[in-house]
Design a protein around this nucleic acid. Sequence first.
DNA 1: TTGTAAACGAGACGGTACGTCCTGTCTTTTA
DNA 2: TAAAAGACAGGACGTACCGTCTCGTTTACAA
Lengths: 195, 195, 195, 195
Amino acid sequence: MNATPNPELRSQRSRRAILDAALELAVRDGYARVTVDAIAAAAGVGKQTIYRWWPGKASVLLEALNDRTGPARDVPNSGDLGRDLTSGTQAVVRLLDSGLGTVWRALVAEAQTDPGLAEELRASFFEPRMQRWQARLDAAVATGELRADAPTRTMVEHLFGPIYYRLLLGTAPLDPADTAHVEYFLNGVRSPDCP
Amino acid sequence: MNATPNPELRSQRSRRAILDAALELAVRDGYARVTVDAIAAAAGVGKQTIYRWWPGKASVLLEALNDRTGPARDVPNSGDLGRDLTSGTQAVVRLLDSGLGTVWRALVAEAQTDPGLAEELRASFFEPRMQRWQARLDAAVATGELRADAPTRTMVEHLFGPIYYRLLLGTAPLDPADTAHVEYFLNGVRSPDCP
Amino acid sequence: MNATPNPELRSQRSRRAILDAALELAVRDGYARVTVDAIAAAAGVGKQTIYRWWPGKASVLLEALNDRTGPARDVPNSGDLGRDLTSGTQAVVRLLDSGLGTVWRALVAEAQTDPGLAEELRASFFEPRMQRWQARLDAAVATGELRADAPTRTMVEHLFGPIYYRLLLGTAPLDPADTAHVEYFLNGVRSPDCP
Amino acid sequence: MNATPNPELRSQRSRRAILDAALELAVRDGYARVTVDAIAAAAGVGKQTIYRWWPGKASVLLEALNDRTGPARDVPNSGDLGRDLTSGTQAVVRLLDSGLGTVWRALVAEAQTDPGLAEELRASFFEPRMQRWQARLDAAVATGELRADAPTRTMVEHLFGPIYYRLLLGTAPLDPADTAHVEYFLNGVRSPDCP
DNA sequence: TTGTAAACGAGACGGTACGTCCTGTCTTTTA
DNA sequence: TAAAAGACAGGACGTACCGTCTCGTTTACAA
């Protein structure tokens, strides 16, 4: 029947109630124990209203998290690259270490077996943030702070990789104070200044 | 009732059939589409025989993967740390990029919402391998190749973090040739030799 | 709110389109597969326009059938009661055996669990027709063709009961030629003429 | 997977609980308000256990009614056909006028749009009972009580038709005392004995 | 050789969540 | 203000797996 619903007629009230209810349930009960039925009931909404706008609970929660976290903010640019990288990665660690972190992990997990969600996650969260950071590194290249041939795109992965490694593989607790890899990283790509 | 089955009476034939069937199904159909019923049917085994020895399909597949991959092998130690790190991380990338990589991702994913599996995963896979690598780095400290104060434990996370970042977040395809982070990493923790 | 819409402002064009679309869909797809949405879409009409004037699809179809069949026509009165009963019941059988018969059965079915519809069905269809037939039988009493004490009201039920029995219980296919019960019936209630 | 479950392994306990719960709910709340979920919950049974053995709630209730009513009992054969027909039809009226009657009506209703159920209904209920009555009439033919050419099969429909007419079309309340049609019927098919 | 006890194949069970479907109401826009 | 359009709350539906629980049947050691 209604292949594609009309977004202009969408009830913002229902959208809000769904996002809020989903996040609250997920934080309180854990992602796995949240069901679409429960979200609908808690939001005072028909189940179909959820399925009309999202493919499943994972997408609801992704939007809820993005909505809560706000858009990709400008990465810090104080002129001191080391300080910016440190504070930036620490901010990420603090976010992931909060109550939302557990939901976030579950979402990344679900994306492993759901290509649609994986793409959604990449496009709506990782890509924008990675591009901001890449721009910051490009600026450092421009000022000569980083080597001219620094592969800024993959460097962003190297910056945040260790954080997600700990988060997802659980080999050690997350710790905002632990930013050693930033230091090593910088040493490796800084313009040579020994002599 | 059946508090603890007697491992000595366990049918090795069934165990083999289960592990083989599980892995084959997972590689062919994808982790998510594998069910315990399907494993049991494909292995010609009763469902209870699976639940008697494993808590669920995730653990079956973890054991199957470990069984297939073999025990943690000695990390390379050619005397040249850079060469060893490069070849070692490349080997990991190749493994994760194979057909088993998809299963592996799904397993890591499931561990996010299953603490028991997370611990099992850590203890049976990551911990042994991380310790081997840590030992390799400790050896490099001993030879003076690395700084004396190098935190070899967390360094291992920094080494493999970027690889898992790509694998799990899907920001770029895995590429064994891409080992730049090893270089940066080394520059950062190598003993100072500028002057 | 919408206590009672004003019938004078009603769109006859919409009414016609709804009745026609409903009947066409019901005959083509079967009553059960017709939905209010489908009727509205096929009629090029808003759903609310249906609910404004009818309580549900059953009433729409009842009106559509009544509209199609026309009002209760005069029962035959040729002077020969037997001939009239035979031709009258045959006409009913032919109607019920047509494509509309299936819709009719579904409507009678729905009335079993919907008292409102049951009353509507009785009042708009069965009652007028039964009264016509009862009048015909009363006339036969007046001419002495039937016994003076013949309970003409219930006799109508006895006349049509076997037809509906076959239609609704499906114990045999409807057959206009099969009017044996009219004969038995007449024998039973005719004025005694043996001697 | 399991196309056809093995009836020998079926749990009679569950079957009983389902039939009892279904009938109780249907009598208490009305057929339309009974849901498969509610039956399963009331019977302490998984929903799948119902769907494994029945196609839907209608079939459950049909079996429940048949189970409760018992097998087709022998129709009365006192030697007096009139008395037997009267008492037999009165018994039917009493059954249909009981609390089970409402459920029965709903079942007949559902059969109008569900060919599978219609067949089930015919085969498991109407056919056996009609055959018993036909046999009774055949016996009356044999004794000369009925005309030799009496079409005993369709005569059964003529006997019970009026009862179901009232039940399903609601033109008048059921009344065990109202057996006039039996009388007319007999007059019509009795062997001629006027002279 | 037989007795017995545990693991086994098979699969029915109670249960949870899913995603679809339809109903009847409500809201917005158009004529 | 009726009508077209369609989103909405609600809730039943049938499906897919889950992990548990019987069943008889094999298998392996003990008597």
